[in-house]
Amino acid sequence: MAAEPIEDDAWRDGATDSHLAESLGDALQARARSGQPMRGFQLKRAALAGIDLVNHGSRSGYQLHDTDLYRADLQNAHLFALDLRGSSLMKADLRGTNLHCADLRDCNLLGIRLDGARLDNVIWDRQLLQERRGRERQRAGDSDAARQLFEEAEETYRNLRLHLEKAGLFEQAGIFFHREMVMRRLQMPRFSGKRLLSWLVDLFSGYGEKPLNVVLFSLGLIFVCGLLYFLVGVRHGDLPLRLALERGWLANLADLAGCLYFSVVTFTTLGYGDITPHGLARPIAALEAFAGSFTMALFVVVFVKKMTR
């Protein structure tokens, strides 16, 4: 028996909560297949378990924009490629749901239940809704509201990360872990030591998710220290290697290359001994050697963490 059609006003004013409750899923399926727009529907606590909103025979899915699905029951639903942009899925039950290729940008995902859901190729926001709103409140000077939104964003990122890890989607899980830690940092007092330390960990390694950050920091430190050695001078046997304006640019370039070589040797703590520091170059070399040992150990930890996934 075909589902009784529901008027547009009923979809948007929440009358569907009580109207045709048993066949609401069938009515929504029929609405989707009719090609009529689906926007701004009020489906709070709707019983939609097992609903099929897959646009069969088409590479693009149906659109269900700006819909309120607060605490909706969508267990084992088929939502392949469904465009849910702008919708609220707060505390919605999507256990066992097929969300493959679904578009969840601009959605409120706080408290969403995703146990056993298929999450392959879901289109996520680079920054979740709560994070964007929190940053807006922060720019407006409302620190209390911003902190509350950052807390909600942290909780949402953590929830999504855990479900993505269970699904074996470690690359996306790593991205959400990084955002989770950023949200935790933004809740700390602005000029506190903990926040500064957290920012440094993010800068150097992306909280263990960005090995390239460690490599770039290493190259930058080697280059900066090489320039400092070139300015203050080091010795290659009895010959000084340093900037000398009275000499030609080729000679200075050769000395700069020697200083960069010494910087690499110092950073990696190889210590061949063919070039030696003196004067102000000694504390620079000591600092670079210490930083190099720490940075190489950090790179190994971050790289192994990424590869063992």
Rank of each mutant, 00 (worst) to 15 (best):
A2V: 06
A3I: 04
A3G: 08
E4T: 08
E4I: 10
P5V: 04
I6G: 00
D8Q: 10
D9V: 10
D13S: 12
G25C: 11
G25Y: 09
G25A: 13
D26C: 03
D26H: 09
A27I: 04
A30W: 10
Q36W: 06
P37G: 11
P37M: 11
P37F: 14
P37I: 10
P37Q: 10
M38L: 15
M38H: 07
M38A: 14
G40A: 06
G40W: 05
Q42C: 05
L43S: 05
L43Y: 07
L43G: 06
A46Y: 09
A46D: 05
A47E: 06
A47D: 03
L48G: 02
L48T: 04
G50Y: 01
I51T: 00
L53C: 05
V54H: 14
G57F: 08
S58K: 13
G61L: 15
D66T: 04
T67I: 13
T67A: 15
T67H: 12
L69I: 07
L69T: 09
L69C: 14
D73V: 06
Q75I: 10
L84W: 02
R85F: 06
G86M: 10
S87V: 11
K91R: 13
R95Q: 15
G96Q: 12
G96M: 13
T97M: 06
T97K: 05
N98V: 13
N98I: 14
L104Y: 03
R105Q: 12
N108K: 11
A117M: 02
L119E: 04
D125T: 04
R133H: 12
E136Q: 13
S143M: 13
D144M: 03
A146S: 14
F150W: 14
E152I: 00
E154A: 15
E155M: 09
T156R: 07
Y157V: 02
Y157I: 01
N159V: 02
R161A: 12
L162R: 15
H163T: 04
F170C: 00
F170I: 01
F170T: 03
I175N: 04
I175A: 08
F176C: 06
F176K: 05
R179E: 09
V182K: 12
M183Q: 11
R184Y: 13
L186V: 02
L186T: 05
Q187R: 15
M188H: 10
G193F: 15
L197Q: 10
L197S: 12
V201L: 15
L203I: 04
S205C: 13
G206Y: 06
Y207P: 04
K210N: 10
L216C: 06
S218L: 02
L221D: 00
F223N: 02
L227F: 11
F230Y: 12
L231N: 03
L231I: 11
V234Q: 01
R235G: 06
H236W: 15
P240N: 09
R242G: 11
L243A: 09
L245N: 02
L245G: 03
A254E: 09
L256T: 02
A257H: 06
C259Q: 01
L260T: 04
L260P: 01
Y261Q: 05
V264A: 05
V265Y: 02
Y272G: 03
G273H: 07
D274G: 04
D274T: 10
T276E: 08
H278I: 01
A281Q: 01
R282P: 00
L287A: 14
E288Q: 14
A289H: 00
F290I: 11
F290P: 00
F294V: 07
L298D: 01
L298I: 01
F299V: 01
V302W: 03
F303E: 05
K306V: 06
T308Q: 15
T308S: 15
